[in-house]
Amino acid sequence: MSEILLNSKVIVYLLSEGILYTLSLIGFLVAIYLLKKWDFSSFSELQFRLEEIAYLIVTLITFIFLAKVGLIFYFIFTIDALSLQVPGAMCAAGVISANSYGLTLLAIKLFIIFGLLLWIFINYLDLEAKNYPYFKLKMALFLVVFLFLTIELTLDFLYFLNIDTNRPVSCCSTLYGQLEGANPLPFGLDIKTLLILFYSLYFVTIFSLFFRQYIINLIATALFLYISYYSVVYFFGTYIYELPTHKCPFCMFAKEYYYIGYLLWGTLFLGAFLMLINSLIALFLKKDIKLSSFAQLLITLFVIISTLYVAIYYFKNGVFL
């Protein structure tokens, strides 16, 4: 048995994921039953019963969503703690790249949170409307999310079972930093254009909402999320660590940097997810769920925090890195 599996945090994490999956499995079976029998125009006793049963899924998904948000932080925290056990790793970056499943797992986790969040808002609209206009849509969405939950659980176990504590892994500076002159940024960007893109995309996302240009907002938010990742890793991160060569998306979760990573990545992803959901619903369901100002606030907060790190460094030292 792998030593990793005896780490209490890993046991707790895997157990929680297992329990949540069992709940979602129950939800899945119920959802299929509902989809088969659902007929809103019918006045049969069965239909009334089904409407009550539907509450089970609402409750289950709300709980799964809340738990998943907590668990993604716990997951990052766990792999950060595992860096003591895996040779060569100095932060979560090394541990997550200990095998090929890690990064896929993290991406799927984020996607699931997005899916569940979208589900919760569609459900909200569905219950508001009294005649369940989006019932089939939300159940179909849940089936998709369930598929990803299955993949996630498989990857969870594959990932933790395959961490080899005898084989050294790379640390973050080898993974992100020293690339021997190769440009790590997409589309051949350099830092200056990256930053210009970062700030201009930020303004586009904010203003496109004011003018209700949802298609532009969707594209801009998706791009902003993508560009933000690179900006934080290759530019803002260096100011958090106050070291021009330290490029890592994970070290900022550590205590040494006051756990700022949780706030920084948290505001970015939550803000961007809410904005995407807001625009998606406005575009396809023609409904306003009044999330835009909250999403704008979160994204603005993210931009302000990142910028402040640079500004404070400049005020303290009089130079940029």
Partner: peptide, 25 residues
């Protein structure tokens, strides 16, 4: 503390969700 909390609260809520729903409906 977080580990203990997660290890307790998730099984706790998971096991009462379905009975509570049954009562409610």
């Amino acid at each position: 503390i977080a580990t203990i909390f997660i290890l307790f609260i998730i099984p706790f809520i998971a096991s009462i969700l379905i009975p509570v729903w049954k009562i409610a409906i």
